[in-house]
Amino acid sequence: MADETSADINNPALQPNGEDTSPAIGLISQYVKDMSFENPSAPTVYQWQDAPQIDVQFNIAADNVGENLFEVSLKIDVTSKADQGTMFVIELKYAGLFGVRNVPDDQLQPFFLAEAPRILFPFARRVVADAVRDGGFAPLLLEPIDFHGLFMQQMQQVEAEQAGAAAPVGQA
């Protein structure tokens, strides 16, 4: 019969000195890093009757900002136009500071490009809705985004491009 002490020594996550070596990622802080709201057609824009065309663009970036610290930023650009002109433009860079411990490098990219944006998005969505409302328009509620699905789609595209580059060209 094995005693509990030997079982703990065999567990790599539990070191004899009490150090926890299990992988962990935690959100330390989240914040608006940069934001701009433009209402170039005010005050006449409030008299326009046409339904606007809304263009929304997203970009995700992850930067190492210190030892075991990473900043993940979600950039959201929204442009609303009608036939008469631009109604509003909003640019938001919303970021989160994540602490990382004992996570293999191959696990970081999926977290930073899929999971971290999923965590940050609801808060960025609220900032956009409030800014648009404060600009005198109906709040813009961005649709939820499947960041994991987009990440998987991007990885498949990269793999397909790499496989295409490795394939022979022409006939021998």
Rank of each mutant, 00 (worst) to 15 (best):
Met1Pro: 09
Ala2Leu: 11
Ala2Met: 12
Asp3Gln: 11
Glu4Ser: 06
Asp8Ser: 13
Asp8Leu: 15
Ile9Arg: 14
Ile9Met: 15
Pro12Tyr: 10
Ala13His: 12
Leu14Val: 13
Gln15Thr: 12
Gln15Glu: 01
Gly18Gln: 09
Asp20Val: 07
Thr21Glu: 05
Ser22Gly: 08
Pro23Ser: 08
Ala24Asp: 09
Ile25Cys: 01
Gly26Met: 14
Ser29Asp: 15
Ser29Tyr: 11
Gln30Asp: 13
Tyr31Phe: 15
Val32Arg: 07
Asp34Glu: 15
Met35Lys: 00
Met35Arg: 01
Glu38His: 01
Glu38Leu: 02
Asn39Val: 11
Pro43Gln: 10
Thr44Gln: 15
Gln47Thr: 14
Gln49Met: 12
Gln49Pro: 00
Asp50Lys: 06
Asp55Lys: 15
Val56Phe: 01
Gln57Asn: 13
Asn59Ala: 14
Ala61Gln: 15
Ala61Arg: 14
Ala61Tyr: 03
Asn64Phe: 00
Val65Leu: 08
Glu67Trp: 06
Asn68Met: 01
Phe70Ala: 13
Val72Asp: 08
Ser73Asp: 05
Leu74Thr: 05
Leu74Trp: 03
Ile76Ser: 10
Ile76Lys: 07
Asp77Trp: 01
Ala82Gly: 12
Asp83Gly: 03
Gln84Asn: 11
Thr86Tyr: 05
Met87Glu: 00
Val89Glu: 14
Ala95Ile: 10
Gly96Ile: 07
Gly96Trp: 05
Leu97Arg: 04
Val103Thr: 07
Pro104Arg: 02
Asp105Gly: 12
Asp106Cys: 05
Gln107Gly: 01
Leu108Ser: 03
Leu108Gly: 07
Gln109Ala: 14
Phe111Ile: 04
Phe112Tyr: 07
Glu115Asp: 13
Pro117Glu: 14
Arg118Glu: 12
Leu120Lys: 10
Phe123Gln: 13
Phe123Thr: 13
Val127Phe: 08
Ala129Met: 07
Arg133Glu: 13
Gly136Thr: 05
Ala138Met: 11
Leu142Val: 03
Glu143Gln: 15
Pro144Thr: 04
Pro144Arg: 10
Pro144Trp: 14
Pro144Asn: 02
Ile145Trp: 04
Asp146Val: 09
Gly149Cys: 08
Leu150Thr: 02
Phe151Lys: 09
Gln154Val: 03
Val158Met: 11
Ala160Glu: 11
Ala160His: 04
Glu161Met: 01
Val169Trp: 01
Gln171Ala: 14
